[in-house]
Design a protein around this nucleic acid. Structure first.
Length: 127
DNA sequence: CGCTTGACCGGAA
DNA sequence: ATTCCGGCCAAGC
């Protein structure tokens, strides 16, 4: 297949950081979710992008500047990816009020829905 | 240059 | 539920 590298990885990483910075405290996103927010670069096959973009997001996190809340990015299973420093990430999230059950976060409740759904006030039951 | 590893994900055994 | 595999990029040695 076409072995096409990203035109400019640093530019892509910058887009990743830009999205991650929008995640409010108390919410989390997944690597794949961030990847889907970014349009595939023109020289990349959409199929290839879908397959590997989550890993590129992970790479961006590894190189993230200090002003990026990297701790709010977890994997699609609601867990923290194993690596040195994983406990620190969990601690930071717990400080933001995110509970862990069996080392997992309930994505149905704490996954950020994106801009416009900042804080979705649960509609009170009408009876 | 060539190989290895990695903060992923979804589908298949 | 768990393990394995394909995808085929980027960075380090």
């Amino acid at each position: 297949m076409n072995y096409t590298p990203l035109p400019n990885p640093q530019t892509y990483y910058a887009q990743v950081w830009s999205h991650v910075r929008q995640v409010p405290p108390g919410k989390v996103v997944t690597y794949g979710q961030i990847a889907q927010m970014i349009p595939p670069p023109a020289d990349i096959d959409p199929q290839d992008y879908k397959a590997f973009s989550p890993r590129w997001v992970g790479e961006a996190m590894a190189a993230s500047p200090a002003n990026v809340p990297w701790q709010r990015v977890i994997n699609a299973q609601g867990k923290i990816s194993q690596r040195p420093g994983a406990e620190k990430q969990r601690h930071l999230l717990e400080e933001e009020g995110i509970p862990f059950v069996k080392d997992k976060v309930d994505l149905n409740r704490f996954q950020w829905r994106g801009p416009g759904h900042e804080d979705e006030p649960r509609q009170a039951s009408l009876f």
